[in-house]
């Protein structure tokens, strides 16, 4: 089955993390006004980190490939390419999604937040800072995905228990084994973010 067919079948919810946040919207979303796009490149506008980007992309290009190959926003990584590992995690309209399984064309009109958009200048976002403080990273390839998953989770659950935080991060995988630091990092970040110092 092609990626396009797969995604059409399950809607954008296919890219949502295990919590099923986007399922309702996926059901409600009509297929692009009934009109067929492509297969050649079509103009696409993506709103990423508060800025519009105009691109000319084939409709089959995923949001992840659009970010990495066309916009040089390479914080999100391509690892499993099948919505399993979470290394490509970004936040779309406030929700945590796997960008490898969302088409760029379907992400139009939504606010896309990537790892590149959450730190300001040299000041790290409190989630990133907490990951550094607790050594919640080794090779670092899963880290941007985890940071975005943790941010998305904490935005919605500002005061989690450890168990809830673990549930919130269970859609991401790390191979080096940095979960011990991550547990501490997420809880520290929740305290920092609540303090409003980095809102």
């Amino acid at each position: 089955m092609s990626r396009r067919g797969f995604i059409r079948g399950v809607g954008i919810g296919g890219g949502a993390l295990g919590t099923g946040l986007l399922e309702k919207e996926a059901l409600a979303a009509p297929p692009a006004g009934g009109k067929t796009e492509g297969p050649g490149p079509v103009p696409i506008t993506l709103n990423i980190n508060g800025k519009p980007y105009n691109l000319n992309l084939e409709p089959r290009v995923t949001l992840l490939d659009a970010l990495r190959n066309h916009l040089d926003l390479t914080g999100a990584k391509k690892v499993c390419d099948r919505a399993t590992c979470g290394a490509c995690t970004v936040i779309v309209s406030g929700k945590v999604v796997y960008s490898c399984t969302v088409l760029a064309i379907d992400a139009q009109g939504k606010e896309i937040q990537t790892i590149e958009g959450i730190s300001t200048g040299n000041r790290l976002h409190p989630v990133s800072a907490a990951f550094v403080n607790h050594d919640a990273q080794q090779c670092g390839y899963c880290t941007p995905g985890f940071v975005m998953a943790a941010k998305g989770f904490l935005d919605r659950n500002p005061n989690p228990t450890l168990e809830q935080a673990e549930h919130g991060l269970c859609g991401n995988l790390c191979r080096c084994g940095t979960y011990v630091g991550m547990r501490k990092a997420v809880l520290e970040a929740s305290r920092e973010m609540k303090g409003g110092r980095h809102a």
Binding site: T114, I118, P144, V147
Partner: peptide, 21 residues
Amino acid sequence: TKRLDGPQKASGKAKYSSDLN
């Protein structure tokens, strides 16, 4: 001591070979 490249990695700025464009 905190790893010195931690901020680069945790902010997505670290460029792996697979990130080169």
